[in-house]
Structures are given as C-alpha cells and as structure tokens.
Write a protein that binds this DNA or RNA. Sequence first.
DNA 1: GCAACCGATTGCAAAATGCAATCAGATTAG
DNA 2: CTAATCTGATTGCATTTTGCAATCGGTTGC
Lengths: 173, 173
Amino acid sequence: MSLDRRSGCPINLSLEVFGDRWSLIILRDMIFGGRRHFRELLNGSIEGIASNILADRLKRLMELGMLTKADDPSHKQKAIYSLTEMAITLVPILAHLGAWGRVWLPTSEELSIRAELLEKGGPPMWEKFMDELRHEHLGMALDTASGPSVRATLQAAYQAVVAGKALGASPAA
Amino acid sequence: MSLDRRSGCPINLSLEVFGDRWSLIILRDMIFGGRRHFRELLNGSIEGIASNILADRLKRLMELGMLTKADDPSHKQKAIYSLTEMAITLVPILAHLGAWGRVWLPTSEELSIRAELLEKGGPPMWEKFMDELRHEHLGMALDTASGPSVRATLQAAYQAVVAGKALGASPAA
DNA sequence: GCAACCGATTGCAAAATGCAATCAGATTAG
DNA sequence: CTAATCTGATTGCATTTTGCAATCGGTTGC
C-alpha cells in the first residue's frame, strides 16, 4: 500500500487511506469490537487477517495518524493500540456503510443487527459512541449522561440474536 | 477483484464491493461528473485509470448490480452506462466520505469545494441530487421543485474557485 | 478511402496478497 | 531453574492484482 497522492479530491484521498480490503476492517474491530492488541485483532475477527498484513496495516494507520501505539503497563512486551480523533470520526461513515450494506448486500442477520441498531440510533447515538471512544482511547472525560455503553448495547443485541438462533435451530428439542 | 465473501458483516460486504482503489472513483465520476461513456471515464478523471482496469471494474460493477449498460442510440458502438438505485443510494456515503477527507486529509481547495457544498446542503440536498440521478439514469420523473440542478451548482462552485485561483495567481497582472 | 474514435483485450513487469514457518524477548507453570 | 507459552512482529515463497503500453476489430465523420 503506497501513500502517494493521485489527486487532491477528498473522496480520492479518503480512498487512499482505507480503500483496501483490510484497513477499515481493523478499525471496525477496534471501534466496535473494542480490540486493542495485535493478537486480539489477529485472532478475533471473523475474516482472518494474516499477521504480516496486520502488522503492515497497523504501521500504515499509525503513519497516517489514525492510530497510536503505547506499551501496555501490565505486560512489558504487549503493545496497546489507540484510536485517534481522526479514526473516531469515522463512526458516522461506518454507520452509513453498514446501513447501506444491510440494504443491498447479503448480510447475515446476527452480524447486521448492530448496523441496524446503529442506524436507528442515528447521529445522537453516534455522538454518544464517539464520546465513549474518546474516553476509552484518548482519556477524555465523558460528558454525555451515561446509561449502558453503546458498545455494550450493540453487543447485547448481537448476543440476543445468536441465542435466539440457537434456540430456533435446536433440533426438535 | 474476487467476489467471494469473507463474512456476512455489512461493513465487510460493503468493503468487498468498493474496497479497492478504483470502483468508487468510477462511481464518483459518474455521479458527480455525469460521465456515462467508457472514454469519458478513461480520460475524464484526474487520477488516470488504465483501460483494462476500467473495463474490469465496469464489468464487476455490473455483475454487482451497481451499473447497467445499454447501446447509445446515436453511436452504434458506443455504450452508455447507467447507475442503478443501489449506486445512487451511495450519495450520502460519498458526501460523508468527502466531508471526512476534507477535514483530515490534504485536499486541494478547488476539488474540495464540492464536498464542502454537499456537506452544507445536508440530507435535503442529497435527496434532491439522488432524485436528479434517478431521473437521469432510471428515467423517473422529477418530483422535487427544481431550480438549478445540484450537479450544476457544484460545478459552478468549482469553476468559480478555479477562476478565482487563476486571477489570484496571475503574475503581477 | 482513411484518419479518428469506439469499447475493450493482450502481454508483461512490478507490486500486493495469502499462507506457513519462524524470530527474539517476556512471562508463566511446574 | 527450566521448559513451555505468549508477545508483536518478520521472512520466504507462490499466487494474484495492478499499472502501463501497445493493439484489436469495428464504426464514424469527412
């Protein structure tokens, strides 16, 4: 993945940042999955990224200013990755992307429930989520009234669908 | 570009549709640039796509249901490409993408004025634009009160910036 | 006729990707 | 203390994708 600029068009430049098959997947897992470590990203996501590609993309996203890396205080060789404000502001784009994909593409029910909820929540929910991410990754104070975190809400909905499916699909029990 | 599915996640599936360096650029030029022919897309955009890649992507976008192809009645060997509803509904995503890129990436002023206008216009402007695109590409009747077309508005703003730059940059005239 | 143009296709070198094996250092279990 | 395990990567290699230039057969305007 090169960093050269083909043109100053905003859409083109955005595509040069995450117009590949992995960068946005990594950011998705960090944002919605809460993953912060190399291994979590390597083994955690459904799609199965190769370790060299992951290392390359993490490096690239850091160079682009979307991620920062720090030592994990609890483990000397563990690195912890954090989202920058630049990456956090992708939340509305990811929400739109999920909403579009849910309409037009053959998404699976359990994986699209989160997109559906995020779409229904609209900009207010996105703002709350971004605020939570700023707290989590940038150490900023939370300024919206809390309640359950957006990520927890999305995760609970996902679990509910999975559980429902398991029940419905259980063979004549 | 393969069509295999890594997972049913909406974001992943969306990425598999236009998570490459060219598909969205082509759609951008069709949507905002009004380009309908192979040659227009080949020579028209700033980024300079190779003809084999363009042919491949057009074919792929047709297979995915984002484009249709028809004979141009005026020229027997000319093909005219049309956006489908699936592609037209990308307008909000492109608007968000442009807005994000304008904030975080080194965009050029003349190329980002359109993104700025589209952002300021918000969902109402996007709806009007999508309606115009449906008229243009799907032959549907326009149902919003007209005035100048959104594309014309964006284009005029672009021209104004270019003209302004030419004046400002003219050497001691 | 004939040059210019139409939407592609071909050949080829360079780059990116996927995959498995492996690395050195840090931690943990016995 | 020692061996096994876990950390974030790196290496080598085969496959796929890309970028680039040249070219194709057919169509159009002159």
